[in-house]
Write a protein that binds this DNA or RNA. Sequence first.
DNA 1: TCTGGGGTCCTCACCCTC
DNA 2: TCTGGAGGGTGAGGACCC
Length: 498
Amino acid sequence: MRAAPTILHLDMDAFYASVEQASKPSLRGKAVIVGGLGPRGVVATASYEARRFGVHSAMPMAQARRLCPNGACLIPRFSLYRAVSDVVMALLRELSPLVEPLSLDEAFVDLEAGGTAFDAESALETGQRLRADILAATGLNASVGLAGSKMLAKVASEEAKPDGLLLIEPGTERALLAPMSVRTLPGVGPATGEHLRRAGITTVGELAEAGEDELVRMVGRSHGVGLYRMALGLDDRPVVAERDAKSVSVEDTFDVDLHDRVRIRNEVQRLADRCVHRLRDSGHSGRTIVLKVRRYDFSTLTRSETLRGPTDDPAVVREAAARLLEAVDTTGGVRLLGVGVTGLADYTQEDLFAQSMAAEAEAAAEAASAGEGGAIEPAGAAEAAGTGGAGGSGGPAGPGGPAEAPERAELADEPEPARERRWAAGSDVRHAVYGPGWVQGSGVGRVTVRFERPGSPPGRVRTFRVDDPELEPSDPLPLVGEPAAGEPAAGGPVPEEG
DNA sequence: TCTGGGGTCCTCACCCTC
DNA sequence: TCTGGAGGGTGAGGACCC
């Protein structure tokens, strides 16, 4: 436990929503809700204006729309958020080599390791300068917490929000924490919070009074000891700059529950391929393949299989995932499928052929012994196929642009319909005449675009046919910076329409 | 028309080996 | 030869975080 408050926790305020407001001037000061727009989408971030209506993260999007019917609902644009995050993280690394990113919008910094702060006064000065630098570089507000430990620095930044800075002086920790809800402490979620509440413990002070033995009895050894120390303000976890990934996974929630076993198998294969892509991109291989299935009633089960050695071979992962699926009852419907790989290594064991062949032989033997029910269902078995027709995977769609063509062998014989271009709300576009803008909405063959850019005044709205050849998807523009020479000024100030 | 996606960590049960 | 722990590996599920 260090005395000097030189651990800094940075938290960007309502990050995704703030980036959208910065890049779309007409949304400044308005309720903005970022999340999945499908029937099963949830809110990723809401602007402070939307939060006043009761909208918050993880809330179903349908409920958020009911609470805040005039809010702008946008899909997340992760490539843009990542670019902004890179700028912020670079500023943090100027302060210290010990920077621990927690997500795109949060990080810990050990200021002492960077030699930028050794006491309260210099830490405060560093924190203020950082906030100013972030505002100048990105146009966004950030909150900063300073304390002697990670837990307290995070509590401090939470208290400082929005757009603030708070330092917790050494010696004041317990008094500050005592009246706070147990849910303030990291690791206390809904389940543990409810568990403690039933025992009459609702504040951090009561948690400290309960004593270590009582907490261990209630929530188990590891959690109980940790909780008691946190309640006393004790936390000696170091800031760790590099963390090795331990697993890679992909999952999809479907707009409509899947019933057709053939379709479910195909989705698992597709997810296995996507997972291997991600695995390879990260430079890893893995030894344990995990299949995740969430059923119609939201019950979730996982099945896993450990191979003899790590692999990044798509065929091996596909086969393992398919074997795991065979052991799962999917009658009643499936709302989510996922495929993951754990037990990561940075090499592959080159007996993959053997693994693949062995798996094949095993599967063949099983199919032979199973006889009747086994392998491929006849087409007639897929009576529920119609229910899943609408474009399959739900959840937040990829950032912007027309949807990808799905690769589904069983659909290959269908006549290819003339594909209508789809424009996701919030995605970036460029018009040959009017310049850069973003999609405000689309439907019945029309797309409405607002022509504005970061730093411009609120722009003009125009409507086009969805197949207008002069309209193209485009990359996001930087939040701060001059417009490129020769570009048409975006829209120009006009009175709000509609 | 409730309830995403990508992670980490912990606990428990079971099996196997020593 | 039998038995009982200890301990590791594996599989499954839950809680939590952003």
